[in-house]
Write a protein that binds this DNA or RNA. Sequence first.
DNA 1: ACATTTGTCAACCATTTGGTTAAACTAATT
DNA 2: AATTAGTTTAACCAAATGGTTGACAAATGT
Lengths: 203, 203
Amino acid sequence: MTVEEQSTPENNILKAAKEIFQKKGMAAARMQEIADEAGINKAMLHYYYRSKELLFEAVFKSAFHMLAPQLNEIMNADTSVFEKIKNFSSNYISFVLKHPYLPNFIIQELNRNPEFVKNLIAEKNFPNISKFKQQVNHKIEAGEIRPINPEQLFINIISLNIFPFIGAPLLKGFVNINDEAYKQLMEDRKTEVADFIINAIKI
Amino acid sequence: MTVEEQSTPENNILKAAKEIFQKKGMAAARMQEIADEAGINKAMLHYYYRSKELLFEAVFKSAFHMLAPQLNEIMNADTSVFEKIKNFSSNYISFVLKHPYLPNFIIQELNRNPEFVKNLIAEKNFPNISKFKQQVNHKIEAGEIRPINPEQLFINIISLNIFPFIGAPLLKGFVNINDEAYKQLMEDRKTEVADFIINAIKI
DNA sequence: ACATTTGTCAACCATTTGGTTAAACTAATT
DNA sequence: AATTAGTTTAACCAAATGGTTGACAAATGT
C-alpha cells in the first residue's frame, strides 16, 4: 500500500484537494469546498497544510509524480525506439483514462506559473530524453528511419498522446460525437497513435 | 479596418480584458486589473459590459471567432487532403506565434465549462469536418493513403499543431532548451508537421 | 440657450475568501 | 485522577472583490 492510499488525515485532505484543484484550478478552488469534500472543518486544512498555496503545491507535486516517472522509465528503458513509442502510447492513454483531469491540471498550472518547471527539473526522476535522442539519431544514420529532429519527434509523441484529453471538449464538438463514442476513440488510440508515428518515420 | 480594431471604449475594454483573461483565466482575472490595463475606472467596465461574466463571454467569443473560421475555411476548401494538412499547419502555427495565449485560454475555459461548446456549435462558421472525412475516405478507397479513421487523422492534425503551444512550459523542460530555441522549433514545425503527417498516411 | 441623454469618476457596499483564535474534546501517559 | 499532547470546532477577522450609487461633466438634440 503506497503512502497515498493510507487513510491519514493528511492523505484524506490531499485526496479531497486533488479532486477540487484538478477540477477547478488553483484560482477557482475554494478552501471551504475542499474541506467539505474531505468532510472536515476548514480550520483543519490550515492545521495540516499551513496555507492554500502549500496545499496546492502538495497536490501539484503529487500529481506530477504520478506522471513523470512513467515517462522517464519508458524513455530510459533498454528497448528500441519503436518499442518505446508503443509502450508510452499504450501506458499513458490507459493511465489518463483513469485520471482524466490530471493532464489538463498540470498543463494549466504550468502555464499560470512557468517558473514552477525549474523546481520540477531539479528533482530526480524528471524525464530525461537524451538516451531517446541518441537512439533516434543512431537509427537515422543506420537508414532505418527517415531523418527527423529527435526533439520534434519527441514533441510529436507527447502531443498525439496528451492533447486528445486536454482538448476533449473542443474535439468532441469538432468531430461531433458524444462522450461514449469519444472514449472509444481514445481506447483505439492506445495502438493507433504508435502505428501512426511509426508509419511517419519508418523507411 | 475590422470592428475589433476601431478605438471605441468597448473595444479598448475588450482588448484589455483579452490581455488579462487570456493570461490569467476567468477565475484569477480581476476587474480592477482589467480597468487599469484599459486606463479607465472600474465602474466603466460595468457600464459597458454589465458583469464580469458577460465581459468574459465577449472576450471568449471574440477569441474563438479568430480561430474557428480559419479552420473551417481550410477544411471546406476545394483543395486536396494533403494541401489542407499543409495549409492548416502553416497557417495555424503562424497565427499562434502571434497570439501565444489564445489556444491555452480557449482550451482551459472549455474544460472549466464544457457545456459552453454547445453555444459555439450553434453558431455558423463552427468548424465542420464532413467534407474532410469524405475526402479522406475517398483517398483510402483509391489506395492513395493508408486506411485510417478520418476522425483519428483529424485529431492527430489538431494535436500536433496545438499542443506544442499549450504544453510549451512542460516541453521546454523535457527538451531542455530556452525560449529562443523553442520558438525556432515552432518555426520549423510550420512545414515539419505536415511532412510528418503526410509520411504517416501516404502509401 | 436649454434639456436630455450619455459617459466618467470617487466613494461606497455586501459578500466572499483565506486565515486565525480560543475553547473544547479525545486519548494516551503518568 | 491529573496531566499532557494532539486534534477538532465554531466564531471571528481583515482583506479583497464584484458590483452600485450619486454627483458631475460632456455631448447631443431641439
